[in-house]
Each structure stands twice: as structure tokens, then as C-alpha cells.
Simulated scan of single mutants.
Amino acid sequence: MESEILTRGLLYLSLTLLGVPGNSIVIWAFVRLAYQERHLLPADAIVLHLASANLIVVGVRCLLESLATFQLSDVFSDTGCKAVIFLYRTSRSLSIWLTFVLSAYQCLSTAAPGSRWAAVRALAARNLGCIFLVLWLINTSMSSAAVLFSLSSRNNSSLMQHGINVQFCFVHFPSKLSRDANGAAQVSRDVLPMALMTTASLIILFFLYHHTHQVKSVHKSTCSRGGSLSSERRAAITVVTLVTLYVIFYGVDNGLWVYTLTVKETMSSSVVSDLRVFFSSLYAAVSPFVIIVSNKKVKKLLKCELEEKLLLNTETALSSV
């Protein structure tokens, strides 16, 4: 196996080993929490949906790419390429928009009770299911080009005039105009939530700074509201961290995508495409660990589960003596 292929396979395998368990743990924690408490807070429901989208990103792209690279399994026929690229693009864009929804909801949480923005937050919480449905419909429709133009690289190596090489598959467009239009639509779909969530994060940071300054100047406020402030700050910092990761990883991803569209020589090379997939999947693989480390509910559930297992193993060991 060539060193380039081996390196590629190991990179995708590392993302798989990070992303699949990490997102699975987050999903398990919030599903269990929903079962125990009979409901989820809106922010927790958004995080659960985000982890589900990230799991699909890592599962359908990184895991399958790893298996194909090491020749363990290969689903990249014409039909397989259409399915994989469609699911990857849909879940990838869902991950982006759900990160924006999470940052926007946290931003609205800073609004004063009884204000217009607080009413918007309450309205969003009541209609969260509709928001998820609209995001699914928009992103699946915008990923439909993958179903129309994706082909297996094994049988279609000659169709690269207006195509993009994604290692095991080609995305072959009928014309340069259709390729550039699809590329522009994808960039716009990513840049818009990037701008919006960056704005929301700046508002959150400003609120945290202003609130902390107020608390420092009034010692009694610190004593009476310390717990609430700590929880509020922790949730805000989590969101800002996720947005920062998104801006870094997807910023590189979109920069490479624009480079792919504008430099003709990159059309036939899969290296740039591999880098794009790596950086966009890196967010899906790393973000669950930010959630696990910063979310008290998830940490508490994991701690209880670990203690139960240790207690069970101890009792089993004692009974066998």
C-alpha cells in the first residue's frame, strides 16, 4: 500500500475512532436523560440533534472511506456514491445549521425576561420540531445534485471535464456553469450560518463580559446568583467553543472548496477533496468531546454509569472468591 493511501486511511480511521464513540455517547446520554426526566430542554434537544447529524457525517464518510482504503469493504458503486455523498452533504450542512441554531438560542437566552427577544426564544422553543423539519427539507433539497451527478470512479474515470474527484467517486456536472452554480450554493449555505453564529457568539461574549463586570461590582449579587451565573457561563462558553471550532474547520474547508472550483488542475486530484472532507469531518469528530467535558448532565450520567459498572465488577469479583 502506498504511503499516501496509508496516511489517508489512517487519518479517516482516526476521525472514525473519535467521532463514532464520541457522538454515540452524547446521543446515549441525552436519550437516557429524556427517558428519565420525560422531556428535554430545548438546548439539550438541539445538542442531541447536532450529535446525530455529526454521527452520520463520521459514519457515512470517514468509516466507509476507511474500510474502502484498507480494502475491508467497498460500497462505492454508482449507487453507493450517490447515497454516501448525498447523506454526507445533507448531514454536514445540518451540522452547520444546528450549530447556528444552538448559538442563536443561547444568544436569545441572554435577553431580559419579558422582552421581545425573550418572546422569540419562547416561540423557538415551542416550535423546535418545525425548525428541525425545515432544516432537513432545505438541506436535503440542496444536496440533490449529489444524487444526479455522483458516479463511481472505477467506471467513470473519463468523465472529469466538469467533475470533481472525491477519491472513490466523481461528482460529474454536465457543464462548467452547473458546477460553479452548485459550488456557489454550497459556499453560501456555509458562509451564511457562519456569519450569523459568529455574530451570536460575539453577543454572548459581550453579555458575559458585561454580566461579570456587574457581578464584581456588587458582591451580594455574586453570593446570591453564583450558581445561576456559573451554569449560564458554562453553557455560553460551550456554544462559543463549538462556534470557534466550526469557523476554523469549515473556514479551511470552504477555502479549499473555492480553490477547487477556481483552479482547473485540482479537478482531477483527490488530495484537496480529502483535505476538505478531513477538516469538515474534524468538527463532527471533536465537537462531542467539547459537549461531554462541558455539559454537567452528560458528565453526571457518565460518572453514574461508570460507578455502577465498577460496583457491579467488584460484586462479581467478590462473589467468585
Rank of each mutant, 00 (worst) to 15 (best):
I138Q: 10
N139K: 05
A124G: 08
L245H: 06
G183P: 06
S150M: 08
S152R: 05
V191T: 12
S143Y: 00
P193L: 03
M142L: 11
P193M: 03
I164P: 04
F206V: 15
V243W: 02
F207V: 01
L148Y: 12
T238M: 08
M194Q: 07
S158A: 11
S150I: 02
V247D: 03
Q167A: 15
Q214W: 07
V166A: 15
K220H: 10
L242T: 03
S221D: 12
N139I: 01
I138N: 03
V134D: 00
Y209N: 09
N127K: 14
D180Q: 14
L245Y: 05
N127W: 15
M142T: 08
G129V: 05
I203H: 13
V243G: 03
L192G: 01
M194Y: 03
R234G: 03
A181N: 10
A118I: 03
R121Y: 03
V191N: 01
T212V: 08
K216S: 15
S143M: 02
Q186L: 15
V240F: 01
A184R: 06
K176Q: 14
F149K: 02
L205R: 13
R121V: 01
S217E: 08
V134F: 04
N165G: 08
F149D: 05
A145G: 14
T222K: 09
Y209H: 11
N139M: 05
I203R: 14
I237V: 10
V243Y: 04
L196H: 01
R225E: 09
A181R: 10
T222E: 11
V171T: 12
I204Q: 00
M160V: 13
H211K: 15
A124W: 09
A119I: 04
S188Y: 03
R189K: 07
T140N: 07
A185Q: 14
D180P: 04
S178K: 14
N155D: 14
L135N: 09
V191Y: 03
A184W: 06
S141N: 09
S157K: 12
A236S: 15
C223P: 00
S217P: 01
I138S: 05
L123Y: 08
R121N: 03
P174L: 06
L208S: 01
T140A: 09
L205H: 05
I131Q: 04
G226I: 00
N156C: 12
S230Y: 12
I237N: 01
I203N: 05
I164Q: 11
S201G: 05
F170N: 08
F168V: 04
T244S: 15
A146I: 02
T198M: 10
L202K: 06
L137G: 03
L245Q: 07
V247P: 00
L229K: 00
V215W: 02
S153H: 13
V171R: 02
A124T: 08
